[in-house]
Design a protein around this nucleic acid. Structure first.
Lengths: 195, 195
DNA sequence: AGATGTATACCGAACGGTAGGTAAGGTTCT
DNA sequence: AGAACCTTACCTACCGTTCGGTATACATCT
């Protein structure tokens, strides 16, 4: 989750993530970004070309990071229940490790602000939900879950709850026990409410 | 879900909801709003005082509407399972009946865009989640649900999924069978996944 | 060693354009 | 006449972006 370039560029990158996350694309001005990062406006243009350029760079970095995460966890070959727990734990860990970037991604994902240039990102952001469905399907096939469950619905429940908790985690800087939280989420869904 | 004033005001109100929902507060200009609603800029200022004024008016109208909904449903005295289903159905119905306003509210609720003047709205928007917790608590007390369930977690699962589905409903104008969807959501949570 | 050339990293000032907002003045209705 | 409603014309502040430059550093030629 980095920019792999000079210090200055990386610094701008990080501040941009913070500002965009807080105020959205249209809420941040280049002047503000330049003041907050302590460089001149032209310097930002030197590195990123345009306002849109910074935003896109942030998106790209995030997508790459997420894809790597998912592949690594899949390779561990856990039970579905455990893989779900690990996926959620890993998401929460990212939030602690890269709060600015995590906050930025969740804001992009949530915001309705229609920015024409993030359409393909939004499309790619459906992939995690598909992965969840595949995972649950595997749970049914292996006998871990009942075969009468509605996989799409369960994936929605899970996916939206993960988003929601990341969002809440990012808003209130509370030092939650996020590992326990991850287990609770999965258990609550797996066990249901009924007697 | 109305403005209870003149036609012109109501018309501006509706267009504003559409635009804010699509582009966020900072993404909409007063010029655009005036062009789209077919009145001059000063007319908008005549009715709403400021850009912030329109936004606030939309928020107020929405809060009132939601509170009325919840109270009415509570008075029906249903089982917890059924009350949950009805609440969700009612939300979905609103989305069909007042798509502009529903889309606006969901966008406010979801977006991280920090607009200082909507802080008290965001605070009040926690109330529905609290209502859900109370409802689930009632379910435990009446014996409808197991006593070992994590109420907060279940409320989060449910609340975030409702938000998510409304959001999805609003994005893809698909004519979903939302009544069936409401039942599926509640059933999936109530019955769990495990064998 | 010193002069010259060139690339990188940055900045102050200014561009055309648009933002939110208003002053002043017509209509229309009562 | 006066209140309610709505417009044209205009304001200032700020927007994203670019221009024209500077400082440094390293390579090349003499």
């Amino acid at each position: 989750m980095a920019c792999t370039e000079t210090d200055t560029k990386e610094h701008i990158f990080k501040i941009a993530a913070q500002l965009f996350a807080e105020k959205g694309f249209n809420g941040v001005s280049m002047r503000e970004l330049s003041e907050q990062s302590g460089v001149s406006k032209p310097t930002i243009y030197y590195y990123f070309g345009s306002k849109e350029g910074i935003y896109r760079a942030l998106l790209e970095a995030g997508i790459e990071h997420t894809q790597a995460d998912v592949a690594r966890i899949r390779a561990l070959n856990l039970s579905v229940h455990d893989e779900l727990v690990v996926i959620i734990k890993e998401k929460f860990r990212d939030c602690r490790e890269y709060p600015e970037f995590s906050k930025f991604f969740i804001s992009v994902h949530m915001s309705i602000e229609k920015l024409t240039f993030i359409n393909d990102f939004k499309q790619r952001s459906d992939e995690p939900m598909m992965k969840l469905e595949q995972l649950l399907q595997r749970g049914v096939e292996s006998g871990e879950f009942r075969s009468d469950i509605d996989i799409k619905m369960a994936a929605d429940l899970l996916g939206s709850t993960i988003l929601f908790h990341i969002w809440r985690l990012m808003e209130s800087k509370a030092a939650n026990d996020s590992d326990q939280l991850a287990e609770k989420i999965v258990d609550t869904l797996c066990n249901g409410l009924r007697k």
